[in-house]
Amino acid sequence: MRQHNYFIYIITNAQRQTIYKGITNDLERRLDEHYRNRGKKGSFAGENSCYYLVYWERFQYVNHAIDREKQIKGWKFSKKLALIESLNPQWLFLNDEIVDE
């Protein structure tokens, strides 16, 4: 049986001033889309040049990923920052660590 992968992720800009939360079934492809859309008008992530991955979680079931994304989106900004720093205290850019499975 095929393993399904769904991801929630948080990206930021080069200055680490803005964060964007999202969900995808292909994290590598989605990060590439954010990179290609940097600086473009019409989307929050594009306008703010958010394409640096600082946090992600993987789920087998899409409904679990959706529930988690909704939970995180409902948090105050300070709680979102604490989540990132709990696993990535230096806010390292993790884009190069993403490999197709």
Rank of each mutant, 00 (worst) to 15 (best):
K21Y: 01
K76F: 09
A45Y: 01
I11C: 03
K21S: 01
R2L: 14
E69N: 03
Y9D: 00
L27F: 06
N63P: 07
Y6N: 04
R2T: 12
H34V: 09
Y20I: 07
D100H: 13
A65V: 10
G46V: 08
E101K: 12
N13M: 10
K21L: 06
F7I: 06
R58W: 06
R29Y: 14
L94Q: 06
K21P: 00
F59L: 00
D100M: 11
K76M: 12
K40H: 15
D32E: 15
T24P: 05
R30T: 10
L31T: 00
N88L: 04
A14I: 09
L92I: 09
W75I: 05
R30E: 11
V62R: 04
I84S: 03
D100V: 09
N88S: 08
L53Q: 00
I84D: 02
G22L: 02
F93W: 08
S43R: 09
P89H: 03
D100G: 13
T12D: 04
Y20P: 01
E85N: 09
G22P: 04
E28I: 09
F93D: 03
I8P: 01
A82L: 13
L81C: 07
E57Q: 14
Q60G: 12
I23C: 07
I98S: 03
A82Y: 05
W91Q: 02
Y55K: 01
I98P: 01
P89R: 03
Y20G: 04
E47Y: 13
W91M: 07
M1L: 15
L31R: 03
H64R: 12
E101W: 14
F44V: 10
Y61A: 11
L27S: 02
T24M: 04
N13E: 10
N13W: 10
Q3S: 12
N25H: 15
E47F: 10
I84K: 02
D96T: 12
E28S: 10
R2F: 12
R29D: 15
V99G: 03
G39D: 11
W91R: 01
